[in-house]
Computed example of a mutant assay.
Amino acid sequence: MSNSALEFKDMSFGYPYENDLFMELNVAVQPGEFVSIIGASGSGKSTLFKLTVGLEEPTRGSIRLDGEKKANRLGHVGYMPQQDLLLPWRSILDNAALPLEIKGVSKKEAHKRIIPLLDEFGLNGTRDKFPSELSGGMRQRVSFLRTVLSGSPILLLDEPFSALDAITKVSMQEWLLQQWEKQGSTIIFITHDVDEALFLADRVFVLTETPIKELKEVTVPLNRPRRLEDLYSADLLEVKKDLMFELRSTIT
């Protein structure tokens, strides 16, 4: 049995009345790994997201979590979308408590568990505020806390920083790496930003031609902990150049 946190095994998928988008795809992500998935618009990133979290099912093959075939993955993979989706009428504390409440935890117990985490996630002093009172970066911190509280060791983040300004985006990338190192989760990070993919990940998977029979894999030549200046190392600039060429070749 595979020890992979996530595995696509001979997985094929296509929407009705269309050709297959994925064809007998085999990919494995290891426990505790940080993987980025990158591709041009329309390359299949969103479909891969839906398949991973269980919003779509393969037409052939299987998707395995922790080595087990999971026909129903909803609730087994924590996910964080592009928009924070915080409920505007709920306080930050109550927003963060939502995944625990869905699991049947009382509001009182959920608050008890979450309050110590607010400071750890950079949210000290926000418990009684509402989403409209927070910056975009702070709202994304709440969204990530909520994703972690789903209890899943596998977290899928779908371009969570795409709407942020450049300075806030860099700050959030550094913060995310710190949290990942503390939590030990397996993270699959979908992005269209080459610098972001390389800065965050151990490996980068590139979606290229369709049908997608394999994902081009790039191992990031950076040690951890990462520093922003590492993005300008000669080795990484060469990798970035190759990635940009690969992505440009997919645009017709």
Rank of each mutant, 00 (worst) to 15 (best):
Y79R: 05
G61I: 03
S132D: 11
R224M: 12
K9V: 13
G75Q: 01
L156W: 13
F49W: 05
I154S: 00
S249G: 06
G125R: 14
K129H: 14
V35W: 05
S249W: 03
V194P: 09
L228F: 04
D20I: 13
I102T: 03
R127D: 15
L93H: 03
N3R: 07
Q140D: 07
L98Y: 14
S143G: 15
F130D: 08
F130W: 06
G184I: 08
D128R: 14
V105A: 04
A234F: 09
R73M: 10
R113S: 10
N72A: 14
P116G: 10
G78Q: 11
S36C: 14
K182M: 04
R226Q: 01
L21P: 00
F199A: 00
L236D: 05
R141G: 05
L100Q: 08
L55S: 10
I212V: 15
S249M: 13
M23K: 14
S41G: 11
F34H: 07
W180P: 06
D66K: 15
I102C: 00
D165F: 07
L222C: 12
Q140C: 12
L198H: 01
L48S: 08
P58C: 09
L156H: 03
P221A: 01
S106Q: 04
P160W: 04
L243I: 15
I190Q: 02
L215I: 03
L236V: 15
I167S: 13
W175H: 03
K107Q: 11
Q183I: 15
M244P: 01
L65G: 03
Q83W: 06
E120H: 12
G39L: 09
K240P: 00
K240G: 01
E101D: 00
W89F: 14
V27T: 01
S4H: 11
S135E: 05
L164W: 06
S4Q: 07
K70L: 07
F144A: 04
W180F: 04
L198V: 09
Q178P: 04
R90C: 05
D202K: 14
E181C: 04
M244L: 12
D20V: 12
R73C: 03
S46L: 05
P225Y: 01
I114C: 02
F205N: 00
I190P: 02
P88M: 09
N19E: 14
S2F: 06
E56V: 02
A40T: 12
M80H: 06
P16G: 02
L74A: 10
G75I: 01
V204A: 02
F189C: 10
G151R: 10
R113T: 12
G78D: 00
V194A: 11
D165V: 02
D235I: 12
H76M: 14
D66H: 12
